[in-house]
Measured scan of single mutants.
Amino acid sequence: VKVFRALYTFEPRTPDELYFEEGDIIYITDMSDTNWWKGTSKGRTGLIPSNYVAEQ
């Protein structure tokens, strides 16, 4: 598990995607895809765009 911080707010387009706000901490559990990672924030899990976060 790696810890990342959201650089921007992300509004999901599908139920599989995770909503998060700029500054949120996201725990990444799967980075197997280059563009979409699986992450958890505020008790919810979903896909996030990798270019919206920076490693802490």
Rank of each mutant, 00 (worst) to 15 (best):
V1R: 10
V1Y: 14
V1I: 13
V1A: 12
K2C: 12
K2M: 10
V3M: 11
V3K: 10
V3R: 10
F4K: 01
F4Q: 00
R5P: 00
R5C: 09
R5W: 10
R5M: 13
A6T: 01
A6I: 03
A6D: 01
L7I: 12
L7D: 02
L7P: 02
L7C: 11
L7E: 04
Y8W: 11
Y8T: 07
Y8K: 14
Y8A: 12
Y8H: 11
Y8G: 06
T9Y: 05
T9N: 11
T9M: 06
F10C: 06
F10D: 00
F10H: 13
F10N: 07
E11N: 15
P12G: 07
P12K: 03
R13M: 11
R13D: 08
R13H: 10
P15V: 13
P15N: 10
P15F: 08
P15D: 13
D16N: 12
D16W: 13
D16Q: 12
E17P: 00
E17C: 08
E17D: 09
L18S: 00
L18E: 02
L18G: 00
L18A: 02
Y19I: 03
Y19N: 07
F20H: 00
F20W: 01
F20M: 10
F20G: 01
E21C: 08
E21Q: 12
E21R: 09
E22A: 15
E22W: 06
G23E: 03
G23Q: 03
G23N: 08
D24C: 04
D24K: 00
I25D: 06
I25Y: 11
I26C: 02
I26F: 03
I26V: 08
Y27A: 06
Y27R: 05
I28K: 00
T29V: 11
T29Q: 09
T29W: 15
D30L: 04
D30K: 03
D30Q: 06
D30H: 06
M31I: 06
M31L: 06
S32K: 08
S32M: 08
S32Y: 07
S32N: 12
D33C: 06
D33P: 04
D33A: 07
T34P: 15
T34Q: 14
T34D: 14
T34F: 10
N35Q: 14
N35G: 12
W36V: 05
W37A: 00
W37M: 03
K38R: 14
K38C: 15
K38P: 05
K38Y: 15
K38I: 15
G39C: 01
G39Y: 02
G39D: 01
G39W: 01
T40S: 13
T40P: 02
T40I: 13
S41E: 02
S41F: 11
S41L: 15
K42I: 04
K42N: 15
K42V: 04
K42Y: 08
K42G: 14
K42Q: 13
G43H: 06
G43E: 05
G43W: 04
G43T: 05
R44V: 12
R44K: 14
T45R: 07
T45V: 11
T45F: 14
L47M: 12
L47Y: 10
L47H: 05
I48M: 04
P49F: 04
S50C: 12
S50Y: 06
N51R: 12
Y52Q: 05
Y52F: 13
Y52L: 10
Y52R: 04
V53Y: 03
A54F: 13
A54H: 11
E55T: 09
E55D: 09
